[in-house]
């Protein structure tokens, strides 16, 4: 393929891929009257901030932003620790039942969340977690994907490093803490991004388990808007933009580490 052709294809692909995002941004700034009169359009020419000011008047946006940040951060921290430990054990330690554990973990990967939602809720409620952020944090702290990623990463991890630490008199756990974790930074980067993303974007589970407007997270507002009677595309897109922006920024900044992390995390 010649270079100009290659370039042209890239531009075409980029245009197609950017269209939905562009639509979100443009409509978020389009006045409601304009959408009502002429339909949603990428070049209506009218601009307004009214969609955003409307949101700030309707929801405690900052508080929900803070809640989302808190919940996603705690989940991520817990999830990274738990999955690092588990993944390492599955990859590097020999014990009876290892393959069974791996199979069970992989099995949970194929469970559709909607199917277990009712029993899961009943459980969370019986544990007295409803109304606590923990109701959201604990069930999503251990993800099969995270554990699997960690295992794949550690399988390729050089045994020599660990053995060296063992010879220096470290226990398994000490060796893990002192030499394994510091060498697992790319993995941690990937796991952090994936876990944070998943938790930040969740809306249905926080809505039913937190059950209090003081505890709601930002994407819940999106659900509230989406199910309102009037299809207020301007308001919905403004909220979609607000709730996506933190992740988009985070991703643009961390993208390099993300790719590097994946290339070393053994999914390949």
């Amino acid at each position: 393929m010649s270079r100009p052709v290659r370039y042209a294809i890239c531009i075409l692909v980029a245009l197609i891929f950017v269209l939905p995002l562009l639509a979100m941004v443009v409509i978020a700034f389009t006045p409601r009257e304009s959408i009502l009169d002429d339909g949603a359009s990428l070049w209506s020419g009218d601009w307004t901030l009214a969609n955003f000011s409307g949101l700030f008047g309707q929801f405690p946006v900052w508080r929900w932003f803070g809640n989302a940040l808190l919940v996603a951060s705690l989940t991520t921290a817990l999830s990274v620790v738990v999955n690092l430990l588990g993944g390492y054990a599955l990859a590097k330690l020999r014990f009876r039942g290892r393959s069974t554990v791996l199979l069970v973990v992989l099995g949970t990967l194929v469970v559709p969340v909607q199917v277990v939602m009712i029993p899961q809720f009943e459980l969370v409620a019986r544990l007295g977690l409803v109304g606590f952020f923990w109701a959201v944090i604990l069930p999503s702290a251990s993800t099969a994907l995270g554990l699997f990623l960690a295992r794949q990463f550690f399988i390729d991890f050089p045994d020599e490093i660990v053995e060296a630490a063992r010879v220096d008199g470290c226990t398994t756990l000490q060796a893990f803490r002192r030499v394994v974790v510091p060498n697992a930074r790319p993995l941690v980067a990937v796991m952090t991004l994936l876990a944070f993303m998943a938790q930040w974007n969740d809306f249905l589970w926080p809505l039913i388990t937190l059950r209090d407007p003081d505890l709601y997270t930002l994407p819940v507002a999106l659900r509230l808007l989406q199910t309102a009677y009037d299809n207020d595309y301007g308001g919905i897109m403004a909220m979609a933009l607000l709730s996506s922006l933190p992740l988009v920024l985070m991703f643009v900044v961390l993208q390099r580490y993300f790719v590097a992390g994946i290339s070393r995390s053994g999914i390949r």
């Binding site: 809720f121 009943e122 409620a125 409803v130 809505l207 039913i208 059950r211 209090d212 509230l224």
Partner: peptide
């Protein structure tokens, strides 16, 4: 009075779950 506002689409899911678990 502690008032909670939920979307109509999800109100019953919340109530169902709440009734099942006493919350």
């Amino acid at each position: 009075v502690d008032l909670t506002v939920v979307p109509f689409a999800d109100f019953a899911t919340g109530v169902d779950a709440g009734l099942l678990s006493g919350t």
